[in-house]
Each structure stands twice: as C-alpha cells, then as structure tokens.
Write a protein that binds this DNA or RNA. Structure first.
Lengths: 214, 214, 214, 214
DNA sequence: GATGAATGAGCGTTCATTCAT
DNA sequence: GATGAATGAACGCTCATTCAT
C-alpha cells in the first residue's frame, strides 16, 4: 500500500512541481535539524533552487511549515478515508487505522517526524494556527470511536475526546521512538498488532482469555 | 499531593537559591514561548537577575534546558519511587503511576509542558543528549510492566519496550492536550481512571464485563 | 496652458509608446513611494508591461530615473523657451518664468514632485550625474538675470549664481509644499504674483510704495 | 559664534555619549551616501561601535534618522531663539535669521545636507512623520514675518505661509548648492548679505535706491 | 559574585536583474 | 520584441554570550 505518492518519489525536474520539491526538501531538512535550526538556504540548496525562489511559493519560513502540514495532512486523510471505506465494524476500522498510521510512519519516517515534532511546537510559535488538518485526522479516530460506542462494541463510559487522545498518543509516541531509534527494537507490523491488542483488551490477562492479536 | 514545592513558590530573595529561581523562571518562559522563542533576557528578567548572572550558573541556553530536565526529572522520579514504595501488585502500581503522572501535570502544568514539548525537540537540538532522566522515568514504567508480566498478571506476549511507550504516549498526549486546552473537556482524576481502565481491559466491551473503573 | 500632453494622458495601447508609458508609470510610482521604495515591478504593473520589458528600454532602475529627468526637462525647457520667446523685458521674462514654473507644478504635480525631490537625491545616488537638464533650466533663469543686470534693471551687485539659486529655491520650496499639502493654503496663481512681487520689490514696505502686484 | 557644540567636536570616548557618537557618525555617512545607500554597519564602523550597539540606542534605521532630526533641530532652534532674543526690529531679526541659517550651514555642512536632503524624503518614507522640529523652525520665520507685517514694516498683502516658504526655500537651495559645490562660487557671508538684500528690497533697481546691503 | 552594556555572527527576506521560452 | 519565473547578492536586525566594572 502506498499512503501517497510521497516525498520520496524523485519527481521529474519539470517546471511545475517546484512547490512540491521545496516541500520535500523542507521535510528532509526539518527532520534533520528541526524547524528552528533549519536555515532557509539549507532547504533551498536541498531543493536545488535559489533562496529567493522559496519566497515565490511561500510567504515565509513559518508558512512553509504550515503549508506542509496542510498539504500532507490532506493527502494522508484522503488516503485514510479511502482505505477505511469498505470496512464495516468499528473494531476492524480501528485496527486498520492503527495499521495505517504506522504504515505511514514506516513509509515516510521523516515526514512523520516533522508532523509529529513540529506540530507540538506549532501551538507555540504560531499563536493562532489551530492545525485544522490535525483535528480532522483526530476526527477520523473520533468517528470510529463514536460508531463503536454507539453500537455497544466499545465501552460507552469512556470519554471519546480522551479516548482518541489516548490512542493517538500511543501511536505517536511509538512512531516517534521508532523513527528516532537507530536500532529498531520491534518492527511496526508487530507494533500495530500489539497496539491493537492493547486497545482492544488491555494488558491484564484474564482467566481463559488468551491474547487474540491478529 | 504536592510533587514538590514547585515553580510557583516565591522563594525568599535569599542569596542561595539563584539557580532554582532561574530554573523556575525558565520553566515559565519556555512554557509560554517555547525554547527557541524564549530569550535569555526574558528568563533573566523573570528570575529577577541580570542576563550575565545566568551564565554563572549555566554554561549556555541549551545547558539551562538540559539541567532543567535533569533536576526536575530527578525530583519527579524520587517522588514517584517514594509513592510507589508500599504498593504490592503491578496492577496497583501501574494505576498509581498513571495517577501520579497526571497529578504532576495538574500541579505543574507549565513544567509538564516544557518537559513534554521541549523534550521532543531535544533529540534535535542536542544531537548527543540522551535524556537520561527521561529514560529512568520510562524505566519505572518498564519495571512495573516487567513485574506484571513476570507474575503472569500482564500479557507476556506484549513487547515491554513497546508497551511502556504506548502507556507513556497516551499519558503524554492527554497531558499535553489538557495543558494546552482552554476549556478542559475532562478532569484529570477521571482521565486517570479511564486510562487505567483502558490499560487494564481495553475498550472492547465483553459480555458480562462492565467497566470497573474507580 | 498645457506644458505637454503629460503623464496623465492614457495613451492608446499602441505598440510604439512603451518607453513613454513606462516613464509615466515611473513618475506616478516614484511620486507615491519615492525612488528607493518604488519597486521596478510596481512600475511595470502600473505601465502594464512585464518586469523584464523595462530592461528593454532602460539600462537599470537608475537609468530609468535619469532618462526621466532628461526627457522631461528637455520638454519643459523647450516649452519655457517657446513661452518666453516674444517677451522683451527681463522683468516680464522673470515674471513669466515664475508663472510657468508654478503652472507646470499645478498641471503635473507628480512630475514636479519627482523632479524636485528625487533630483536632490540624485547628487547622492549617482555620483557622477550632473543633471544637465537641470543646469539648463537654471541657465534660463541666469540668462534672464544677466539680461536684467546688463540693462541696468536688476541690481548688478547681486551675484547671478546666487540669485538664480535664490529664485529657484523659492519656487521649488513653494512647489514642494503645495504639492504635498492636503489643504492648499493658497492657489498657485496668487503665489506666482506674490513671488514676483517679492523678487521685484522685496518685502519691506517703503514710504509711498504700495505693493504693485497683479 | 558656535551654533552648538556640534558633530565635529571629537568628544572624549567616554561611556556616556554613545548615542551622540552614533548620531554624528550617521550624519557623516548619510551625508556621504544618502540614507538609503548608507548601511547600518557603515555607521557602526564610523562610530566605532558594533552593529548591534546601534539598536541599543535606536529602534531601527528609520528611528536613527528621525531622532537625528529631532535632536539636532531642537538644538538649532534653541540656538536661534537665544541669538534672536535681544533683537528688536523684525527687519534685523530676519537679517539675523538668514545669517544664522547660513552660519549653521557653514559650520556643519554635513548636518545641513542631511537635514535638507533627507527631510525632503522624509515625507515619503515616513508616512506619518510630520517633522515637528522643522515646523517649529519655520515657525520662527513665521513669527518674524508676522511681527513685521503687524508693525507695518513688511508688506501685509503677502501671504505669511507663502512668504516663509519663499525665504526658507531660498536659504535651503543656496545652502544645498553651496554644500555640494566643490568650488564655492561665493562665500556665505556675502550670500547672507545678498539674500537679505533681495528679501528686503527685491532685485529691481529703482531710481535713487542703491542697494543698501550690510 | 553580580551586573548589563556591548558585541558580532548569523539569518530571514527583498528586489533589481537576467534569460529561457 | 515581450514575458515573468528564477536568481542570489545584499542588508537590517536579533540575541546568545562576554567581560570590564
């Protein structure tokens, strides 16, 4: 499965995709150095354009990051929606969501790192930016949870807002750790299975209930 | 429960605790503006000292942040250890850990924000810094998990490294959201109970098993 | 009286007068923003041409300003000469010169502003440019003065170089003030009459000599 | 007569007068290159300070120029007032004013150039800055004129606003020319005398009236 | 120890100019 | 001739750090 055509595809150096190339370069440089330590000229060099060219496509350095969020999250959300469309039960949907999230991380680790780490900062350095893309992403999770609670499958006493944060936080922390770790202590397929298992049944073993992970 | 006397205590302007006052000021300023947007002179002003004084106690701005991690995490870990000492079962310990984590967040939201957000950056702006305090914190979790799995209470098929990240990630994301949200959608006591419930039993309702949260 | 068809005439978008259109656009933009704050692309947009087109007609931004001086001053001087041609006495010529100068300002305030303000800068930003057009303009004044002194009408003890500067300076300052003032404190016809009166008789009232202004 | 202690005085390199030294350096550099072509680092080097030091004393480059106007005009106006204080007749006052203006130009040619040339631009690059110091300077002239007209000495039919502009413009243009000319075609003492003569009696010779310049 | 004025390296951004189409 | 996307040198300004007092 390809999550999206992605920052890794070396697009033909045609005249149209400058914006994309700059975004891709920014992902690489931001992932390596972080937003604040990345120089605009680093990104320009990585993208193979002049410094000034960046300002033909983006208002400023902040806008470069924000537009990156928006564009990539839009792609990711569209992909998730498409991948979830034929799945009936909330359980299967949640399992799928977990898998997709980690798949995305595995396919585009640098993008994942940027979205994850810099998004945290975003509430700081952009006073107003509410990260609508991120909210929509969480919205996907919330819909699944709501459906599950509505159908009686998921414990209805759990607060949905809290629940989506719990699941997202687990996925995010695992992703970030996996991305930054040199030696990968586990592969992400297994991680997906285990996280699903934890979500589904928790970690306390009950009499007669063996773990039923996929 | 007070985790420690905290950044809010206006210490007597005695001659001894300059280092502490600077740390406290840094927590406040970093939480408000983020590490990169915080100016050293902001911190100096907040601490009521001259800019240069900061360099009598800390090597540079990075060191100020790192030492903050180390000092505070040390306190936190000591507190956690003390609070966990009399508790026998891994289940109760984990439940306690969750409660303590969120308690700390509620009591010292700015410190929580700094430790949470800036720690993420730390892997960036300090290439070498391995955040030993953070590792030890996670080590507490891992010990609980190991004990639980060793005694057969927790599902032994779950990878401990993954598991501790899952739990920490859930706590961290919930904390960060709670800290930055203006309208608090849930209180942290309830959050602790629900997170424990999810950890323990997952979110899928099983026949005959009503949620047993506190 | 129209000094020339001027920057205000919307010339037909024919293929010939690009140079003129760019000059006119430059007058407008320079008058609004000043030379240094005017962007070449502003002028291009105002002229309805592409940025690069400007460089087909002018060597660079400085050349655009300099050529503007030269072209417009040439027109102005030709107009002045034509208007002065039938006038016999130096007194009447000087009176006419004053009137013509202020007429030009009234008809083409933006051009006046550019010629006036930017000319002052020109001795700065162009180390070499001696503004030959401007010198010729002053030469008209000098000729009138010389004729007046030669015929004994004007006080011969006054230094001609100084005198022309005095007269030009008075005209220039009044023009600039009038151009930039929102509420016009006097109209330029009256100004011409009074300036002539001052030039002719000074401002000290003498016994038995009532002002003989128009 | 010293107009003021002045930019030319090499003040002891004490710790107090940094602001003054930067102002003086700015006068020199602005006079040589013009405001827009002057680099802040040029001024810093000329003042013998680091670039950043300038920003301890001035908000930005514009503020450096504006504060220069204000400080220097204040000094100049105070000097003028002091020098005019004992003079009774408006005629003598006006004569004195003319002399003082040209004296100032002779003593501080670079300052005169900056005040003159950049002031013209100021109405452009500073949209709001109304140059209060300059208005007060013109106010001195206006007071003299009003007194002269009130006492019947000066022609009351002349518009005072216009008149002050005429006189100031004459002085200004003569000053600017004198400052920028390499070979000085006249000395400023003589210029003062002649300008006074023109103001007083005009340039038309009348029967029986020999020029009565000082 | 404490101060805070001074430093100057570093970077985001602009915009006159070019040149492939 | 005309275009306008691309260029990259240039510069104003910031702020972590120093050091004379």
């Amino acid at each position: 499965m390809r999550i999206h055509s992605g920052g890794l595809a070396i697009s033909s150096p045609g005249p149209k995709d400058k914006r994309r190339r700059i975004h891709d370069a920014a992902v690489k440089v931001f992932a390596e150095k972080g937003f604040y330590n990345a120089r605009v000229s680093d990104i320009a060099k990585e993208a193979g354009v002049a410094d000034g060219t960046i300002y033909l496509y983006f208002k400023n350095k902040d806008d470069l990051l924000i537009s990156l969020f928006e564009d990539r999250m839009e792609e990711i959300i569209a992909n998730f929606k498409a991948s979830l469309v034929g799945i009936d039960t909330p359980e299967a949907q949640l399992q799928r969501f977990i898998t997709l999230h980690l798949k995305m991380v595995a396919d585009q680790p640098r993008l994942a790192e940027v979205l994850t780490v810099e998004l945290r900062q975003s509430s700081k350095f952009m006073h107003e930016y509410r990260a609508p893309g991120f909210r929509e992403y969480l919205g996907l999770l919330e819909d699944i949870i709501a459906a599950g609670q509505g159908s009686g499958l998921f414990d209805p006493s759990l607060h949905p807002t809290l629940l989506k944060r719990v699941i997202f936080g687990a996925l995010d922390e695992v992703s970030l750790h996996w991305v930054s770790a040199r030696r990968k202590p586990y592969d992400l397929d297994r991680a997906a299975a285990e996280i699903w298992s934890i979500c589904a049944h928790g970690l306390v073993r009950r009499a007669g209930s063996h773990a039923e992970n996929t």
